[in-house]
């Protein structure tokens, strides 16, 4: 995994902005930021994270690769889109935040144990298994992410909602036994493999 990181460092030297432009979703819009501060002041999570989008974009330009990619700031984005609708330059800020998070994850240097990242991983692993999200196993995996004790506690707290969903036909208890898959599971996996191949080629991960 960190092989990818070493390769990236060798490839882009000190030009982190170029790396972001080529490898991060919508990364080529970073240079359009005029540092006005509207996104930073508009983000509801602003007070709770270390680097606002405004600051992240400046850090990218200043070549602070390590600090940006290992930061948990972009993992804090809730996709509320407040920043996007207000940005005077119409930067796709939300997409860039997620793009950076995804890229850091790809390189294997994203913060370990960051809850959003852990949930995203759980969600993804659940999804690719059968081609559809198994809500029951996903929920359980999420509850027990912090160990058995807290897991049981959350499960008990959420009991009523779970039961209501079962009664309403929104949650099938039988899904615990693996659950059903999409019709053409092999086809689905082939699609994912192809998508990854294309992405790797486009972003320069493969030769």
């Amino acid at each position: 995994m960190s092989d990818l990181n070493t390769q990236a460092v060798a490839r882009y030297k000190n030009n982190f902005l170029r790396e972001v432009e080529e490898r991060v979703e919508e990364g080529d819009m970073v240079k359009m930021c005029m540092q006005c501060g509207v996104c930073a002041g508009s983000c509801p999570l602003g007070p709770h994270w270390q680097h606002s989008p405004q600051k992240i974009f400046m850090m990218i330009r200043a070549g602070k690769r390590e600090e940006v990619l290992t930061s948990d700031s972009m993992w804090m984005c809730t996709s509320c889109y407040n920043c996007i609708v207000r940005c005077p330059r119409q930067l796709p800020i939300t997409h860039i935040m997620h793009g950076l998070a995804n890229y850091a994850h790809r390189l294997g240097i994203a913060p370990k144990g960051q809850p959003t990242r852990e949930f995203a991983k759980t969600f993804w692993n659940n999804l690719i298994k059968k081609g559809r999200v198994n809500e029951l196993t996903l929920t359980l995996a999420h509850y027990f992410a912090n160990g058995i004790g807290p897991g049981i506690q959350i499960a008990l707290n959420m009991q009523k909602i779970g039961l209501g969903m079962v009664l309403a036909g929104r949650l099938n208890p039988m899904e615990i036994f693996g659950g059903h898959s999409v019709k053409d599971l092999n086809g689905f996996h082939a699609v994912l493999a192809k998508a990854k191949e294309i992405e790797d080629r486009k972003k320069g991960f493969s030769a």
Partner: peptide, 24 residues
């Protein structure tokens, strides 16, 4: 660039919210 304005209901003063670029 100010992100948004709210109002202090007690005295009618506008309250400016934002982040400054010199030091964030």
């Amino acid at each position: 660039k100010v992100a948004r304005i709210a109002e202090n209901k007690d005295n009618g003063n506008p309250v400016l919210h934002g982040v400054d670029t010199e030091g964030y």
